[in-house]
Computed example of a mutant assay.
Amino acid sequence: MITDTHTHLYSSQYNEDQDLMMQRAKDAGVSRFFVPAIDSSYTEKMLSLEKNYPGDVFLMMGLHPTYVKENYLDELAHVKKWIDQKDFFAIGEIGIDLYWDKSFLTQQQEAFSTQIKWAKEKKLPIVIHCRDAFDEIFEILEAEKGDNLKGIFHCFTGTKEQALKAISYNMKLGIGGVVTFKNGKIDTFLNEISLQNIVVETDAPYLAPKPFRGKRNESSYITYVIEKLSDIYQLPVDEIAKITTQNSKDVFGI
């Protein structure tokens, strides 16, 4: 059993072949697909996915930091409405992104803190999006840390020191296609991080691993991530899949 802990299955890039793409993933051994939210415009697509693939697709709810704009309070109200009326498996993806635009930093910080509080109230894990914002993310995690907070640092691309700090806040590291890149860097120290702290993901349709880098990603390609981790940890592929899936169960509770 393989778990893709982060895949945007509702992407328009799958409009023409979604069923085939899902079947390829299942044929590759992927049996659990965790789907993050972005903003309110994707909610209906996410609910349709859950209906079309019962028992395979598990939904999160949250406001993605790059979608924190002038209407962010309305978007947060949408998140709160849905988590109050339906069961989700995480609050995500949430966080701070200063790569594209720094002008909404204050609002991103507020949205991140607010959604963490909701996660703790609902006893749900969080899935963190962090880009050029480790210090800002850690500052908020330091304020919110506790036994009632856990989750995943999605698409982790930081240093060993940042990895250890993330783990100290009860976060697993979400490892995807970047680990296969020559300039990815995380492969240089990952073997010093216990595999118990690792989950695997694709972030499909983004960040396809080698040999598909630059092309559309899909959940079946997670096997290339697992093969790279097998090389890094010197463990059989099946063992990597088993341990990382168990880690995902520890996070999501299923």
Rank of each mutant, 00 (worst) to 15 (best):
I91E: 15
A143E: 11
S248P: 05
P54G: 13
T5C: 12
T202D: 03
K160R: 07
L47T: 07
L105S: 00
D74A: 14
H129K: 02
A119L: 14
F189A: 08
G29K: 12
D97A: 00
D231R: 13
Y206C: 01
W82R: 15
D250G: 06
I126T: 12
I2L: 13
V178G: 03
F112H: 03
Y169M: 08
L20Q: 14
I38P: 00
F34M: 15
A111S: 14
M171F: 04
I193S: 01
L141M: 14
Q13E: 11
R24A: 06
G174D: 02
D203M: 02
L149S: 13
F34R: 12
F189M: 09
D27W: 02
E161P: 02
M60R: 00
V35R: 13
E121Y: 10
T159N: 10
D187F: 03
L47I: 08
I167G: 07
A119C: 10
W118L: 15
Q108H: 03
G158P: 09
T244G: 05
F33T: 04
V251L: 04
Y72L: 06
D238K: 13
D101H: 12
S48K: 11
F252V: 10
K228S: 12
S219Q: 00
D187W: 02
K69V: 13
G158N: 04
K249A: 10
L235C: 11
G92S: 11
L173Y: 14
K80P: 10
D97C: 07
D187M: 04
F88H: 09
A28N: 13
L235Q: 15
K86D: 12
E144N: 06
K45I: 00
I226C: 15
L47H: 14
S11E: 02
K102C: 08
I193C: 04
S194P: 01
V35L: 15
G174I: 02
W118P: 10
M21N: 07
K69M: 06
T244P: 12
D27S: 07
F34D: 04
S41K: 09
I243D: 12
C130N: 13
K242S: 15
V127A: 11
D135Q: 10
T106I: 04
Q246V: 01
S248E: 04
K51D: 10
K215R: 08
A119W: 07
I83L: 15
H129P: 07
D27L: 09
T66D: 14
F112C: 03
T223S: 08
A37Y: 03
P36G: 11
E70V: 13
L164W: 03
H6G: 06
E121A: 14
G176A: 03
V237P: 05
N170T: 07
F134P: 01
S103C: 00
Y42F: 11
W118N: 04
M1A: 05
L73R: 14
Q85N: 11
Y169V: 07
